[in-house]
Design a protein around this nucleic acid. Structure first.
Lengths: 100, 100
DNA sequence: CCGTATCCCACGAGATACTG
DNA sequence: CAGTATCTCGTGGGATACGG
């Protein structure tokens, strides 16, 4: 394992540890969602959700798609990179399940 | 998935996201280590390492064993619970490797 | 050797209000 | 609808020094 991989791991764990990251990932694994839908799905404050989405976007986990409509419509979807995190999330869930 | 599992997952991700958690786990997966050995293995400041070990102890990830010797000797080892995290860490590493 | 105490700064995150 | 602005508070974490 090289230093670059190491940094990448620590960055990913840092992001995963932030408030609501896991909830956002879980929600978006089901498919693309709008900002408001993500709010009610995750229970996050708009500010926190906005930050998380920006960070995930910077990390290449999330794509933002804006539609030229009125009222405005924006959809967020996971990138292939983030979808590759799914087995990992399943592993955490399985781990958490096996300890009551 | 119930609420308890959910909380457990978020607590685990929070702890994993802390500074040095990953390094400590990686080091202890090789076997028990003393405080000083963990310091040089992880490069953490004593304060941070101490905090991390306490949190991991509270989380049931790490056991502390003190020997009645002079000079004092203390060993830290992973619990079965924490060892069960290894596949998960391997998954993160594999994921990080596949993205340059 | 194995930590703890202290000081300090940065920043994550909650609450509420407001705008393109 | 989809965010941003502002304020506030708590706390994670770095550096250095000290104690059992």
């Amino acid at each position: 394992m090289n230093a670059k991989t190491y940094a990448s791991i620590e960055a990913a764990l840092d992001l995963l540890g932030r408030q609501g990251s896991y909830r956002v990932l879980r929600a978006l694994l089901e498919g693309p969602l709008r900002f408001g839908e993500l709010q009610s799905a995750t229970g996050l404050l708009p500010r926190t959700l906005s930050l998380r989405l920006k960070e995930m976007n910077d990390a290449g986990w999330v794509e933002r798609q804006q539609f030229a409509e009125v009222p405005p419509r924006v959809e967020y979807r996971l990138t292939r990179t983030a979808k590759a995190l799914e087995p990992l999330l399943r592993a955490v869930e399985a781990w958490a399940d096996n300890r009551g």
